[in-house]
Each structure stands twice: as structure tokens, then as C-alpha cells.
Design a protein around this nucleic acid. Structure first.
Length: 312
DNA sequence: TTCATTTGACCCTC
DNA sequence: GAGGGTCAAATGAA
């Protein structure tokens, strides 16, 4: 992510930083605005609400920034966003056409993919495995040095059909009580087709119900899921059993990463009030995001904002 | 039959 | 060369 900021010239870099800083400022204003009651939002002469005006400013900020990124870096942006995946052809070949080129696949894999640089967008530690609302497909498992538990590798199910670059690593870091560390890489660009149970997360800073955030969940298997483990099964059921608190509303998903973007510092996210079993499960999670992902964070906010604007 | 998971091999970065 | 991330054939489940 930080590579986005590495414009080819010092002047260009300054310009990018200035624009992104500007965007962040607008995003913060928007954040404050959204905490207010929507009724207080001012409508200007053009008929736009102040929130919409801020959205336009943020988008404008990014539109000004992107041309300042050099071609190589723009390619990198595209790569991260899944616009032009660097080796989709390479690994799709085997999945699409089966054994047609088995013998050459091994050789062709040389240089087929780039190893990911350290660019995690979100780290989450949970006492239980909770679902984050996206469909993940496990593509690997690896024992890690000095770690008694293997690390599990997941990619978005829609990696190939929608080019979604999102991946995550899940590793059990503590046995008793069980603790899992989930590291998210890249954001989802897919349109998540899963609509399952939803939850409402109350903004802890707000006293009224005007600042509800819907948090969607989907069932998912624990990284080292054991079908015969009743405890783990129960945890999965807890997530699945979340009720549709708001029905009939457009289903919009805010991932744990997105939630943290509303507060740009690491902070625990509290879901539901105390006394709720389900809430206990969710509120035990701790999220943290890398400080270098502000621009992506703002982007996430924009995505969420569109939904906010549509949700009336 | 289709799709997800497992697992060993390959490849990249440090 | 070690360690870690990804690929893809094999296998299993629905």
C-alpha cells in the first residue's frame, strides 16, 4: 500500500501525499457528519447534502492523486485491486482446462506469481472463530517456525470470477483459551453474493439509534475446524443464528477492517450491549489496522458511504 | 458432477 | 539456504 505513495518524482510524491491527506481530512469531516443525525445534514443550493459534497471532494482528491503515480506503480495499484492480476492466466490454466498442459504447468509456474510484500490491511485477534461475511476458500496450510499451530491461507472465493484479490491468513496463537490471529491482505473488490444473518453494531460514541451499522455474517468453517468438536460447532452456530434485526433493508456489508477505518487508530470494536451471548463473542475481538493504509481506508469509507446514502 | 479441502512441491524474499 | 506464500493434483463431500 505504501508503494502507492511512491510517485516517480519528489514533486509528484508531495502532490500525492497532499491529495491523500486532503482526502483524509474530508473523510474525517464526513465521519463526524455521519455521527450526527441525518436530519441535521445541510442541503446546499445544488440539492446535495453536505455528506454528498464531502464524498465528491474525497473522490476528487483521489482522482487527482492517481495520475501522479508512475506507470509501474499504477500497475501495482491495479494488481492490488485485482484489475489486472499478474498471473491469472497462469493458474487458471490448470483449473479451467484441466490436464491439457500438465507437463508444462510446473515450468510455467516459474515467475508466475509475486510473493506478497508486507502489506496487510488488517490484523484481527479473536477468542473464537467468527465469520467476517465473505466467502473464503482455503488454498493452503503451512506449519510456521516456532509456532505449534499451522497457518491457514484463505483467498476470496471470487478471486477468479470477479478478480477479487482479498486473502487472509488465520493462525491459532494460543491454545487455552483459544486465540486466533487473522491477517487480512487486500480488500474485497467482489460483490459479495452472500446474504445471511445480519447484526447491528451500535456506535459506542452515539447515544441514540441513528448511527447503527449493519454487520453481516456468513457461516464459515474454523481454520482447524474439527467436525466432531461440539464447542467449535456451537461457535459457528452462534454466528449463523444471528437474527435479521433489520429486514427489508439493502444488505450492505462492512468488514472488520472497514469498521476500524472509522477510527483510524487501533481500537476494540464493541458489538451489542453486554449481557448478550452473541455480543460477547463479537465484542471479544480486537482489530488493528496498519497506519500506512489510510488511503485504502478512506476508499473503504467511500464504499460504505454509498451504502449509507442509499440506505434511507 | 461440482466444489472445497488437503498437502507436497514450487517459487520468492530475506 | 531458510522460511513463508502460493500453486495445483489428489481426494473427499455434498
Amino acid at each position: 500500500m505504501e508503494s502507492y505513495l511512491l510517485a516517480s518524482t519528489a514533486t509528484g510524491r508531495k502532490r500525492v501525499i497532499a491529495e491523500l491527506t486532503r482526502g483524509r481530512k474530508f473523510a474525517q469531516q464526513l465521519q463526524a457528519l455521519l455521527r450526527k443525525s441525518p436530519e441535521t445534514d445541510v442541503i446546499d443550493g445544488s440539492g446535495m447534502t453536505s455528506a454528498q459534497i464531502l464524498v465528491n471532494k474525497i473522490l476528487d482528491s483521489y482522482n487527482r492523486s492517481l495520475p501522479n503515480i508512475s506507470t509501474d506503480e499504477y500497475d501495482e495499484v491495479s494488481e492490488v485491486l485485482g484489475v489486472d492480476s499478474l498471473c491469472l492466466d497462469g493458474h487458471r490454466r490448470s483449473e479451467d482446462s484441466g490436464e491439457s498442459c500438465k507437463t508444462s504447468v510446473r515450468k510455467d509456474r516459474r515467475g508466475c506469481y509475486k510473493r506478497r510484500r508486507t502489506s496487510e490491511t488488517c490484523i484481527k485477534e479473536t477468542s473464537t472463530w467468527i465469520d467476517d461475511g465473505h466467502a473464503w476458500r482455503k488454498y493452503g496450510q503451512k506449519s510456521i517456525l516456532n509456532s505449534p499451530h499451522p497457518r491457514n491461507y484463505f483467498r476470496c472465493t471470487h478471486k477468479y470470477d470477479q478478480g477479487c484479490p482479498a486473502t487472509k491468513h488465520v493462525q491459532k496463537i494460543q491454545e487455552d483459551p483459544p486465540k486466533f490471529r487473522t491477517t487480512y491482505y487486500d480488500d474485497h473488490t467482489c460483490k459479495n453474493p452472500y446474504k445471511s444473518s445480519q447484526a447491528i453494531i451500535m456506535d459506542p460514541t452515539a447515544g441514540d439509534t441513528s448511527s447503527k451499522i449493519i454487520w453481516s455474517f456468513e457461516s464459515q468453517i474454523e481454520p482447524d475446524y474439527e467436525p466432531n468438536d461440539p464447542v467449535k460447532q456451537k461457535n459457528n452456530e452462534q454466528v449463523q443464528d444471528l437474527p435479521n434485526i433489520i429486514s427489508g433493508s439493502s444488505d450492505y456489508f462492512i468488514s472488520p477492517c472497514h469498521l476500524t477505518t472509522f477510527d483510524q487508530t487501533s481500537c476494540p470494536v464493541t458489538a451489542f450491549s453486554s449481557g448478550s451471548d452473541r455480543g460477547d463473542v463479537i465484542s471479544s475481538d480486537v482489530y488493528s489496522c496498519t497506519a500506512s493504509t489510510h488511503s485504502m481506508d478512506v476508499d473503504c469509507m467511500i464504499v460504505g458511504l454509498d451504502d449509507f446514502l442509499e440506505y434511507d
